[in-house]
């Protein structure tokens, strides 16, 4: 995975796992790889991976059962909130980018409508 080296890597890993949950690449209740396995997969050190996992756990996205492993949450409300958070964030990013390109809100709206028609 390619990381943006100026943003804390554990945040980027959290984003990537959240995206996988939303896209269905990781299903609710699915067991995650071990921290070590994930660290190798993402190409980051154990401490970074550990941090990403504990943050995800704090947010309720994953649940760790001692000695068994970590699982994607089955809590619908958390998944729903995750989706909302992701959508909000993407929209915010998109709007910021458009505005910084000099588009007014109205122009942005027209552009989106045009995009749908294509």
């Amino acid at each position: 995975m390619n990381f943006n080296p100026t943003i804390p890597i554990y945040l980027q890993i959290m984003d990537s796992i959240k995206k996988d949950v939303l896209s269905g690449a990781l299903t609710a209740g699915e067991r995650l790889d071990s921290v070590r396995g994930l660290a190798v997969k993402f190409g980051v050190n154990l401490n970074t991976m550990q941090r990403a996992c504990s943050e995800l756990e704090r947010e309720g996205v994953i649940q760790t059962q001692r000695g068994i492993g970590s699982f994607v949450t089955q809590d619908k409300s958390i998944l729903k909130a995750l989706e909302r958070e992701m959508v909000d964030q993407k929209v915010k990013e998109f709007l910021e980018e458009m505005r910084s390109a000099g588009l007014t809100d109205k122009e942005i709206l027209t552009a989106i409508e045009k995009g749908f028609k294509k």
């Binding site: 990381f3 080296p5 890597i9 070590r36 660290a39 190798v40 993402f42 190409g43 980051v44 050190n45 154990l46 970074t48």
Partner: peptide, 24 residues
């Protein structure tokens, strides 16, 4: 990365900063 655990450590000397950015 897969050789690491809580007890051992690595000292990696390199001038290739970009390549090791994410593992340090």
């Amino acid at each position: 990365l897969s050789g690491m655990n809580e007890d051992n450590s690595v000292l990696l000397a390199t001038h290739l900063v970009n390549e090791v950015e994410t593992i340090l």
